[in-house]
């Protein structure tokens, strides 16, 4: 099998130069870190790991008719702002305000459903406006039992499970940049989905890895998630 290189793809994660030593896999039209080395990373994920999901599709919608539009497209929506609702196919819908929704793609379909939402939207008479998020944000996944302790070093908001249960969303500052943090466990695996400014991704990646070091946290790939 030919070895994949991020440079072979036109869509690249802002973090691709940081994935030194990673084994890449294909995700839709982009490359994604499948793993580091040949070992199974499940135990690492359960302890403390950081995964770059920036090449997975995401998009936002805003407006007084956005909720109705998304319901008609088959999404179940969170009842209140700053809550997230997992969908049956693995997608995640986070409600960021009274009238704004953020849709995060699933690895199961390589993000194709959310990609189609972005491609298929058209400006019409209804107040439902597209918010492209692919090139504005980077998307990281912090996994493991130590995730909230890692975030406690960087962020002023209490992200422990008692105060921030699954389905919670926090729009706040971490390591001094704006982030959206979503508690969205995958089965038994504790997971914090983190979106940050794409241009600051390299800085934030290092800040997270530095905070994770005391918990033996490492960068990992998506293979152990699937």
């Amino acid at each position: 099998m030919a070895i994949l290189q991020a440079q072979d793809f036109s869509e690249r994660s802002p973090l691709y130069p940081r994935h030194v030593g990673a084994r890449l896999g294909q995700l839709g039209n982009a490359a994604v870190v499948a793993g580091y080395g040949d070992e199974d990373e499940s135990a690492q994920l359960q302890r403390c790991a950081l995964i770059d999901q920036s090449n997975l599709a995401r998009v936002g919608f805003r407006g007084s008719d956005a909720a109705e539009y998304l319901r008609a497209r088959g999404y179940r929506l969170p009842e209140r702002p700053n809550q997230a609702q997992p969908q049956d196919d693995g997608c995640l819908v986070a409600r960021l305000s009274q009238s704004e929704y953020l849709l995060l793609g699933s690895l199961r379909d390589a993000g194709s459903r959310i990609q189609q939402e972005e491609a298929g939207w058209q400006l019409g008479d209804s107040a439902n406006y597209l918010l492209p998020r692919q090139d504005s944000h980077a998307w990281l996944l912090l996994t493991g039992e130590q995730a909230s302790e890692v975030m406690a070093k960087l962020c002023g908001v209490d992200l422990r499970a008692e105060a921030f249960p699954p389905g919670s969303v926090a729009q706040t500052s971490a390591a001094r940049i704006n982030v959206i943090v979503i508690n969205a466990p995958q089965g038994e695996l504790p997971c914090l989905q983190i979106l940050c400014d794409r241009a600051s991704a390299s800085y934030f990646w290092d800040a997270l890895l530095d905070a994770m070091a005391e918990f033996d946290g490492r960068a990992a790939g998506i293979d152990a998630l699937l």
Partner: peptide
């Protein structure tokens, strides 16, 4: 919207 936060936000 977001609850109590540091003034630096």
């Amino acid at each position: 919207l977001n609850g109590p936060r540091n003034i630096s936000e």
